[in-house]
Design a protein around this nucleic acid. Structure first.
Length: 250
DNA sequence: TTTCTTAAGGAGAGACAGGG
DNA sequence: CCCTGTCTCTCCTTAAGAAA
């Protein structure tokens, strides 16, 4: 019912797959579809409730909404995500009914590529190749696994409280794990350290804020948890190869 | 086997100054 | 207003070994 959403760019195919890049300016109340739907955040976070299974997810995670399941969601103002509507799902996803999984770096890189391609005026030339490739990558994902229940609240905290100082010991407490166990479980599940994951989230959000808002650099730094704009600027350049200002002037 | 502790090294963040 | 260099300090990562 929805919908104050901006479904900006999309491509569909005779494979029964429709891909679109979307952002939402307010929450969508409960609804369902006659097809399966995957939601893959590109920037920012999205808070989902799928059949009473609630979680906030960010980049490198995927929400799976099975056909007919009631769901609702709300997203950050600057959040953008790839939505895939599918009449069918690879068989590996069907028996499990897991709503939230992590995805591989390669798959995440691909959805970033899709975002860029859909933004090109000449994207028709490559659109025929996007959906079969999406399906193939989805079907051959080997690193896809359900997110450990103990990490779910931690990931939510990281996703929703980026602007606040977050220490590993506090996050470990939230997961009911010792610090060392927390770091081990986190690395096993996400393939990266908690600190690196947090930095990535901060940089992704900063990139989104710089792309879709007119906020000054100092405010962007503040909103992604940096009290010092110079530290933010340095980190941003290290990650993306250009300063925040240069990024906004592309 | 799993979990925890410890210590060394390194990465990242803050503060400040200077320049464009 | 923003970026960069430098210094300092905190705290995170990693690895090894101990304990449960």
């Amino acid at each position: 019912m929805p919908s104050d959403n901006t479904s900006q760019l999309s491509v569909s195919s005779n494979l029964g797959i429709a891909l679109s890049i979307r952002s939402y300016t307010r929450q969508l109340s409960q609804h369902h579809h006659n097809h399966h739907q995957l939601v893959l955040p590109l920037h920012g976070n999205i808070e989902l409730d799928i059949a009473n299974d609630k979680q906030t997810i960010g980049p490198k995670c995927c929400a799976i909404i099975y056909q007919g399941e009631l769901h609702s969601f709300a997203a950050d103002e600057c959040a953008r995500f790839l939505v895939a509507d599918l009449t069918d799902l690879p068989s590996k996803y069907l028996p499990q009914y897991q709503h939230y999984v992590s995805i591989s770096d390669a798959f995440y890189a691909f959805i970033q590529y899709v975002e860029k391609q859909l933004a090109q005026p000449e994207f028709d030339a490559v659109s025929d190749t996007l959906t079969p490739l999406f399906w193939s990558l989805l079907a051959t994902q080997t690193s896809t696994h359900a997110i450990d229940k103990r990490l779910a609240p931690v990931l939510e905290t990281m996703a929703t409280q980026l602007a606040n100082p977050l220490t590993l010991s506090d996050l470990a407490k939230q997961a009911h794990l010792s610090l060392s166990q927390f770091k081990a479980v986190f690395h096993q599940q996400l393939g990266t350290s908690p600190q690196q994951y947090l930095t990535n989230l901060r940089m992704e959000k900063a990139k989104a804020l710089l792309s879709y808002t007119d906020l000054p650099i100092s405010l962007v730094a503040e909103q992604v948890g940096y009290q010092n704009a110079s530290a933010f600027s340095r980190r941003f350049k290290q990650v993306y190869g250009q300063s925040p200002k240069a990024f906004t002037q592309r």
